[in-house]
Simulated scan of single mutants.
Amino acid sequence: MLRRAILRVLADARLARMPPPAPRPSLAIAREYARYFLPKMPGGSLLSLRCSESEFSTHTGTGVAIYMHFVKWTGWLFVLATIVSAIPQFVANSAGDGLLLNRPWGSEACSAARDNKDGFSRLIAYASEVVLFLLYSSLLGNCSFSQVFSARLHLATELFLSTLFCVYVYWIYRYNARMLAQVDSNRLRASDFATSVKGLPPNATTAHALSAHFSFFGEVASVALSRDNAETVRLLNEQAEHKASWRHLHAKYARAVDARGGVAVGLNSKLLKQMESTLRKLLACRCALQASARRKSPCTGHAFVTFARVE
């Protein structure tokens, strides 16, 4: 009964400290919140979709800028490949007679359109015949490779397309390498002033010893040891879950009081029982965390040494 009374006092005290309910969601506030995270120009206006690549890389980073540059130029590559390769091949295929297609115009007009007396039905039949002819005549099977012009046109366009792709791959590789080299020359990286150490013993490694060992190469700013804290992390996650449940029960208690003006006896007993169980779990988890913090965790064999200056 004493624990129930304590929990009742805690619940009422927390209820008294609760802030007023949040206002209803506003579309204007949501729009401003979303706009806050969008890239902007120095004047505060949103970054234009037609901005230069240098402005784009300033906001998104070099990696994203290089990728978007690759996407843009690859699109132009396919446009050029369509103009100089695909269209001539379609023309060569349409000029052939490999599929023995009847042309829907002239003396070879389709019989369905010619024999149909209804004007609308004749139009539909003729349009369907034209679409099918254009579709099948553009296929490679309709090309007459016995004709020297068609064969040479296919060979020339395929050769040009292969050469174009090879040149493009080489050019985009050199461009990306040049851009990355330019970025690396103007920026500092973590590897310029830090190093990773592997293969350390689990129980005989200290940050002071590593700092003394690597001080030969320069002034050491900090040493970060990687330790096996899986049990502590598990307890922290468990504590976070219990705290969330604790807050949820208090919110449920507050809603019940607000709706009824006073909690019913059955609901009161049920909520207090759940709060008592959650509080007991929180205290047990806190004790386990304190015991885990007092134990020295073994080293995983990895460490990061950071130097004070770039040598």
Rank of each mutant, 00 (worst) to 15 (best):
A293I: 05
D97W: 12
E32Y: 07
G43N: 15
R17I: 14
G199F: 02
A251I: 06
N116P: 03
F216A: 14
R286W: 08
S85N: 04
A34N: 14
E311Q: 08
K72I: 03
P298W: 09
K117L: 14
P298H: 06
V64S: 06
R50Q: 09
A194E: 12
S185K: 15
V305W: 07
L283F: 07
A125R: 03
E219V: 13
V9Q: 10
P201N: 02
L7N: 05
P298F: 05
A65K: 00
W76F: 11
H242K: 02
P202M: 03
E108T: 03
T232S: 12
F304D: 08
A125G: 01
R35N: 15
S185I: 11
H69W: 03
F90A: 12
P39H: 15
S57A: 14
V167M: 00
N186V: 14
E32F: 13
P19W: 12
R309T: 13
V257K: 15
A113D: 09
R294S: 14
F216M: 10
M18I: 08
M68K: 06
S196E: 06
S245K: 14
S215H: 01
K40T: 04
Q290C: 13
K117M: 12
P19E: 11
S196A: 03
S52V: 05
N93S: 10
L180Q: 10
G61K: 04
R260Q: 07
A230C: 11
S128G: 07
L279M: 09
